[in-house]
Nucleic acid binder design. Structure first.
Lengths: 133, 133
DNA sequence: CTCAGTGCAAACTATTTGCAGATTT
DNA sequence: AAATCTGCAAATAGTTTGCACTGAG
């Protein structure tokens, strides 16, 4: 339940935090820019400042509640961290984002890192293209 | 030879363009931010404006002479396009960037795209971590 | 009551653009 | 000469921060 996650992150339970987390948890859309979240909240009777949205998102990322992605373009997108690592396919026309996970690729990444004496801490794989359906 | 590349891109041969391309072609360092390129040129007796650096880089990317990457962080980095596709490992401590290419991963990406009815136009894979040597 | 959290506006950073003068062809 | 290119300064876009007030615990 949302509120516990917030509390466990050492943060006070406030309206903006509850609403942002609820939005990310319940929306069919999985990926949001800060601006989109801000607009969603305003549209759903929660008055917040954009600064608060950014601050809360930053704190949630630090707390491991959500993840931040840097796809092509200028804005970052945020999504709930459901604990299952995955990569993304981004439709460059529609903006649609689909997630996938592939153990073969994950495994190769680990091997490549090891071959280079590289301690792998994180990685980001994004496919850009267009869905044909 | 540099100048031909510039000309073939439909661009006039000017000092900023020649120097930027030369820097990317001859430096041991392969990846530069716009600011770094700007500073390099200034340090090597070529007076340019940062705006020109950005404009030229944008044109070079459009012409396929160089590539632009969006790693974590706020700045983009540019590197010469030598025609050989590769991915990157970024050392989060030192900033060192090492390139690699893996056919297994490339192949899996194509398969995954196909499985999802996705026309793959581009992709970006970056490993973040730390070199242990 | 205390300290963390908030909204607002101002500050910042990376990048882009308008414009008048300079340069390439 | 014609068209492109450049530097400068101003404009933008996304994000961050200072500050006085508000609200959670």
């Amino acid at each position: 339940m949302d509120k516990n996650d917030i509390k466990q992150a050492g943060l006070k339970i406030t309206k903006p935090r509850i609403e942002i987390l609820k939005l990310l948890e319940t929306s069919k859309k999985q990926h949001f820019t800060a601006e989109e979240i801000y607009q969603e909240l305003l549209a759903h009777d929660t008055k917040v400042g954009i600064a608060t949205v950014y601050r809360v998102l930053t704190q949630f990322v630090a707390a491991g509640l959500i993840m931040k992605h840097n796809f092509e373009g200028d804005q970052c997108v945020f999504e709930l961290d459901r604990g299952e690592h995955h990569d993304h396919m981004v439709d460059m026309k529609s903006g649609r984002i689909v997630e996938f996970h592939d153990e073969v690729i994950e495994q190769r990444q680990r091997e490549i890192a090891k071959e280079h004496g590289f301690e792998l801490l994180d990685h980001s794989l994004t496919l850009y293209g267009e869905f044909k359906d």
